[in-house]
Amino acid sequence: MSSIPKNEQNQKQVQILNELSKRKVVENNSLITSIAKMDKTPLKIFELAVSCIDTEEPPKDHTVYLSKNELFAFFKVSDNDKHARFKQAVENMQKQAFFKIKEKKEHGFEFENIVPIPYVKWTDYHDEVTIRFSPEIIPYLINLKNNFTQHALSDLAELNSKYSIILYRWLSMNYNQYEHYSYKGGRREEQVEAYRNPSISIRELREMTDTINDYKRFTHFETRVLKEPLEEINAHTSFNVTYEKVKKGRSIDSIVFHITKKPVARNDFYKLEEQDPIYLQDKANKEQAEELLAGKALKSKYTKLLLDNMLLSPYEMTDTALMAGLQKNVYPLYDELKELRGLNGVKDHLAYVSSKQEAYSKRNVAKYLKKAIEQYLPTVKRQDL
Rank of each mutant, 00 (worst) to 15 (best):
residue 144 L to D: 06
residue 138 I to D: 09
residue 52 C to S: 04
residue 58 P to D: 11
residue 371 K to A: 15
residue 271 K to V: 09
residue 178 Y to M: 07
residue 210 D to L: 02
residue 328 K to Q: 12
residue 249 G to L: 01
residue 308 D to T: 06
residue 23 R to P: 00
residue 168 Y to N: 11
residue 339 E to H: 04
residue 366 A to K: 01
residue 206 R to F: 06
residue 354 S to W: 04
residue 29 N to E: 09
residue 318 T to N: 13
residue 331 Y to T: 02
residue 39 D to L: 07
residue 253 D to F: 12
residue 26 V to I: 15
residue 322 L to G: 10
residue 154 S to M: 02
residue 1 M to S: 13
residue 364 N to K: 06
residue 229 P to M: 14
residue 337 L to E: 12
residue 199 S to H: 01
residue 34 S to C: 15
residue 232 E to Y: 06
residue 5 P to C: 14
residue 330 V to L: 05
residue 242 T to V: 05
residue 169 R to Q: 12
residue 96 Q to S: 10
residue 75 F to W: 11
residue 251 S to A: 09
residue 209 T to I: 02
residue 108 G to Y: 02
residue 129 V to K: 05
residue 72 F to W: 01
residue 296 K to N: 14
residue 70 E to Y: 03
residue 301 K to P: 00
residue 33 T to Q: 13
residue 248 K to C: 07
residue 291 E to T: 13
residue 300 S to A: 10
residue 142 I to P: 04
residue 315 Y to T: 10
residue 24 K to Y: 15
residue 67 S to Y: 07
residue 25 V to C: 04
residue 216 K to S: 15
residue 170 W to Q: 08
residue 20 L to V: 07
residue 37 K to D: 10
residue 276 D to W: 05
residue 313 S to V: 01
residue 242 T to G: 14
residue 260 T to D: 14
residue 110 E to N: 06
residue 228 E to G: 03
residue 252 I to H: 03
residue 327 Q to P: 03
residue 249 G to A: 07
residue 303 T to Q: 07
residue 71 L to W: 01
residue 138 I to R: 05
residue 361 S to D: 04
residue 276 D to A: 12
residue 228 E to I: 10
residue 51 S to V: 05
residue 56 E to K: 08
residue 146 N to H: 15
residue 345 G to C: 03
residue 2 S to Y: 09
residue 275 Q to C: 08
residue 134 S to M: 02
residue 105 K to Y: 04
residue 78 S to I: 00
residue 363 R to K: 10
residue 384 D to H: 09
residue 286 K to N: 10
residue 59 P to V: 04
residue 248 K to M: 12
residue 378 P to K: 08
residue 169 R to K: 12
residue 288 Q to S: 11
residue 264 V to L: 08
